[in-house]
């Protein structure tokens, strides 16, 4: 993972912690999935995606946002969307 991706992932991690009201030191990594986080269901997933879109000022491709398997894939999606809109 390069520096830009590190930064993107760090922001996503902060958004996940805030969205799901996790403790600041929660173990959240690129392999973290919805099953690992209490309260992360399909509905709160939509809230998470909207928070991510707002933070990165980008729209993510809706046909893919419900298929991401973990936070690493979400970070990749953000990177692709940002590159496409640059």
């Amino acid at each position: 993972m390069n520096a830009a991706n590190d930064e993107i992932f760090a922001q996503i991690k902060a958004i996940v912690i805030k969205t799901f009201r996790l403790p600041d030191d929660a173990q959240v990594g690129s392999a973290t999935t919805a099953a690992d986080v209490e309260g992360w269901d399909s509905l709160s997933h939509a809230v998470l995606i909207m928070n991510v879109e707002e933070a990165f000022h980008t729209d993510l491709p809706l046909e893919r946002v419900y298929a991401v398997k973990d936070l690493g894939e979400l970070a990749n999606l953000v990177r692709e969307a940002m590159a496409a809109s640059a």
Binding site: S42, H45, A46, V47, M50, E53, D59, V65
Partner: peptide, 18 residues
């Protein structure tokens, strides 16, 4: 506040995926 139009798009995608 969250965009209700974007929210509609998100919900449409979620229901479609479901």
């Amino acid at each position: 506040w969250p965009s209700l139009d974007r929210s509609f798009q998100m919900e449409s995608a979620r229901l479609s995926a479901q």
